[in-house]
């Protein structure tokens, strides 16, 4: 990834504690082409600093325990080095689903 790369958009959808902490249901982010999920997470932390220490680690680049990412509502991912696709919707939610 380089800072000169053209921007693309992705949307982070927030659920559970992340939604409560951010006070928002979803956040649309501009990230450079070639950005990774970790980059998107860092951009989300900049847009919603209240997520730091709640869902995102203080360094802005990792999820805190208890949270997980899902792509477009279909696939869960644990590798944050995976590239973001243009227009992708990234769900940030709890990794616990006990009822």
């Amino acid at each position: 990834m380089t800072s000169a790369a053209p921007a693309m958009q992705c949307t982070m959808e927030l659920f559970g504690m992340a939604r409560l902490a951010a006070g928002r249901v979803a956040v649309t982010l501009a990230v450079p082409r070639g950005a990774t999920l970790a980059d998107a997470l860092a951009a989300l932390a900049l847009a919603c600093p209240t997520l730091l220490g709640k869902a995102i680690a203080e360094n802005g680049a990792a999820l805190l325990p208890g949270h997980v990412l899902n792509l477009d509502g279909r696939s869960f991912v644990d590798d944050l080095s995976q590239p973001v696709r243009p227009g992708e919707r990234i769900l940030l939610l709890s990794d616990q689903a006990g009822g």
Partner: peptide, 9 residues
């Protein structure tokens, strides 16, 4: 909290 995430999934 499961309702919203289960619905989305």
């Amino acid at each position: 909290a499961n309702v919203a995430s289960f619905n989305r999934l």
